[in-house]
Structures are given as C-alpha cells and as structure tokens.
Design a protein around this nucleic acid. Structure first.
Lengths: 266, 266
DNA sequence: GAGTGGTCTAGACCACATA
DNA sequence: ATGTGGTCTAGACCACTCG
C-alpha cells in the first residue's frame, strides 16, 4: 500500500481533467500502488468483514465511487478485477453481487471429474465419518496450525450415477469449524463449500492441487470397490479463503475408469 | 459480428463526447457486439495472417486507434483481453508484443510436472521416433481430419534430472507439418512448441487435458523403467491454435513418484 | 421510467524504458 | 526528451432489468 488507505484524497494524484485538485507528485513514490488497487483492497475488506455477505448485492458503482471519493471508472476497474478473481459477480441491469457457492450454476469449478460420455451424471455424497482429533505435523503445516491443534476429519464417498467413484478425506481447522458434527453434515444437502460458507462463514476462494497416480491400498480399495493395487488418481487439495489463508486440506482418490479429470491449459 | 468489420464508422455508435459523429442508433441492434470486440477480432486477424509475428512488437495503441478510427481506450480494452488470453504481452514503456513460446520465462504453462522438493530439475528430451502414417479414426476425429489423412507421430521420453519420467506420443496433422523429420527434430533444441511456431508457423494457444490413472502396459513400462502394471498418470492433451483449430494430440504417461502434476483451481 | 452495469470518448498526467 | 503503456477523470450514451 501507498498512503491514504481509508479515505483517499488522491495520493498519487493525477488530478481530474480540468480541475486543480491535488497538485502533488512528491518524490515519485517508490512503492507505487494505483488507486484502483487500493479500492480493491477496501472492497475486499468489506467482503472479509461480512459487511456484504455471499449472495447479497453490493452498493452500485456510483455509490462506491462517492464513498471512496474516486471516479466511477476507478471503482469499475477494481470491481472488474474482483469479478475476474471470482469474488464478485456482475449482472447487467441488476447490480454486483458477492459470489457464493450456494446458487452457482455449476460446482464444476472445484469438482472436475467428468464422465467419458460427457453426460450429466449426478453425484451423491455418502458420509463415512466425522471426528475431531489433533493435527499431524503434516496437516498442521498445510493448514498453518501448530502441531496437535484440533482439527476435524471428514471421510466420505462420492457416487456418480450410483457408482462409487471418489473417496475424500477432508481436514478442517477445529477452531473455525466448531460444532461441525456428522449429524449436522448429514442434515445439510448440497455442496460442502456451500455449507462451510453459510454455516461457518468461511468462503473458499481458490485452491491448489497436486495430482498423482497411485496404487490403491487395501482399505481404500475396499471402499472404492476396486482390487488392491488398482491405479487411482490421488488429488491433494489445499483450499484458501480471504487473505490466502489455508482452511481445508482434502485428499481424494478417484477411480478413473469411465471418468476423467478435466483440465484447461491457457 | 455486427457490421463495419474492416473500417468501422461506429456502427452501434455512441458518439464521441462533444462531436457530431455517427448519430445512428438504428433498430437497437439485435446481435450487439461492442466495438472493442470487433477491434479484438481485427487484431487477431493480423496475428493469424502473420502481419505481426511471434516475438515482434505490434503498433502502439495510438497508432492502432488511428488505423481503426476508434479511441485509444477502445483498442486498449481489446488489447487487454488479448493479453489476458496470452496472445499478446504488454511491456510498460516498451510496447505490446506478440506472445511467443521461444523466450517465455517459463514453459510451466504447458508442462505442469513438478518435483516434490520444489527444486528446479531441468528436463531433457530423448527422441525415440518420428514417422508419417495415416490417421486412425480416433486421431482424425480429434484433429478434425478425415480418417486416413496423413499425420506425423513423434515419440519421445522426458528425463527429469536424469530420471525417465514422461513418455509422450504426439500426433500432428501431416499437411501442416510437412518436412518434419527426426533429423530436424534432433537438430532443434528447446521446447517443441517453440519449434512448431518458428519452423511451421503454427502457434499453440490453449489446450485441454483429460487426466486418468492407468496401469502401465508392458511396452510403456519398459520405456519408463517401471514394472508392468505400475500406476501412471495418463494425460491426453488436445492443443488448439487460432480459431480454435486443433493442431496436436498428445498422449503422455507420467511417472509420479517424486513428481506431481500441479494444478490451480480458481 | 429509473436504476444498474457496459461501452465509448477525450484529455490529462504518471511510470517506465530508451536514446 | 520522447514514446510507450498505465492510471484517473468526466461525461455521454447504450443494453438490460424490474416495477
């Protein structure tokens, strides 16, 4: 950040078209941060603080411009980038909304397993367990916790069109997901990320995955109805929320006969 | 496209600020295409036709604005999107350049296999063969050719830090890659896509991948120095050039012990 | 018709690179 | 000093949505 974080009076001011505002240009700021980036930060803060909740509409561009004392074009550019990052969703004629996992037209953003025939195989989740325990060194490292900090472990199966296809082990920081039980999980329907968002106020923004081919170990093989040693896709995901804070580690084993992991390189 | 494809006189004209240009607004165009999209198309044409070649600089924004008879802001938005699509690269103070696979700071854009330790293991290619044959039904379909059309097949191994890690089978349309031989391949050094670009005028823009876990078949296992049945990552890639025309099918088998396929979900 | 996002323009000035 | 992309502003008008 540069200066004027809260109520900018045009720091690196390049002045309005025909006005005499802010004839600054001091030492040619060494750490230059454009105004719209600062606005972006301010909007992100409001998202993080819950001033505008997932699914809700945010103030119009003109309102925000007035609030931040900048031109509409500047908040526009800020919102553009936030929309590109999937934090906001623009809807022409209606307004700008906080992105949500609840009413998203597709969870394909995070589940990229497709059937060979391209059909729309609906997937259902079968919960296996949900318990609280202390983080291993590895999980603690990935979740940015201290070893032996409390975590929640969820195990579940995903069935695609009746076929058992995915086994997931999901680790969550216990402090954030207080009160998460198997009962509560089973009551809720819909994507896990939607539940995390509405029930625990934690919204997944982005994730990284490490993908490998592995041989099925006996316990995994049994759950997935494949012989031991069967080749499985191992997907280790770390999900992040605002401020790039990790909030989930998910280890998945995918059966990729009849299904494949779809990826786009661009 | 809307109208005025070549030398626009502001079709859906919303007129300059204080001028009397193009007071149109006819039947409220049913298929509305913004000006900057049309400009984007015109620039893409120039890229495709080779008017500006990979690595070269393109005309400045003001020049293009004059050429297309639009404001600088409009060509700016067009270039912005083309840069986001990795067709152009902006460099402040210098100009805008046509993207190239030659001097790219990283080919990580297309090779996403990383070592567990995160180190910079240099990879070297070992060519196995390069022959011309007739497309199978499947390959023809994927390359949008007619069955039995001529294709080129390249097989190669990739070694990471000495270890054999990847086996690739690469299919190319024979008509485009005329004169591609094993000798020519071995002479060239650097990424294949760089060679395709400079030697055959075909630039890869984007690709899709289907990823699976499979058991190594005997012939593959032998080449990769793993036992038969060993779990391998199967990566089937289709690459596209301008106009979303497919120009490569690449089937890869990756050994993912000590390495993983890195992916970002956002 | 009023409000919202989307497009387009024109002009000023800043940051960066190069000569 | 000049030219290039990058930021910021102000204002006009268009496309879309909804009451």
């Amino acid at each position: 950040m540069n200066s004027n974080p809260a109520n900018p009076a045009n720091p690196n001011g390049q002045g309005a078209a025909g006005e005499g505002v802010s004839a600054v240009s001091p030492a040619a700021s060494p750490t230059f941060s454009p105004l719209y980036q600062q606005i972006k930060g301010l909007i992100t803060q409001s998202l993080e603080s819950g001033e505008w909740k997932p699914g809700e509409i945010i103030p119009s561009e003109v309102e925000l411009a007035a609030r931040f004392k900048v031109s509409q074009g500047t908040v526009r550019k800020a919102i553009d980038e936030l929309a590109a990052d999937n934090l906001l969703v623009r809807r022409q004629g209606k307004g700008t909304f906080v992105a949500t996992h609840n009413e998203e037209r597709a969870q394909f953003r995070f589940l990229r397993l497709l059937a060979d025939d391209g059909a729309e195989h609906p997937h259902v989740s079968r919960l296996l367990e949900c318990r609280r325990l202390r983080a291993s060194a590895e999980i603690a490292r990935q979740l940015d916790l201290k070893p032996a900090d409390p975590v929640v472990l969820i195990k579940r199966l995903l069935q695609f069109d009746g076929e058992v296809t995915v086994l997931d082990e999901i680790w969550l920081p216990g402090a954030v997901f207080r009160g998460l039980t198997l009962e509560r999980l089973s009551e809720y329907q819909g994507p896990l990320y939607a539940m995390f968002e509405t029930e625990f106020g934690t919204r997944m923004i982005r994730a990284t995955e490490k993908i490998r081919a592995v041989a099925a170990e006996p316990s995994v093989a049994e759950l997935l109805h494949v012989p031991g040693g069967f080749p499985l896709l191992s997907v280790e995901r770390v999900s992040y929320t605002y401020g790039d804070r990790p909030v989930e580690v998910r280890r998945g084993w995918y059966v990729t006969t009849g299904y494949y992991y779809q990826n786009e390189l661009s």
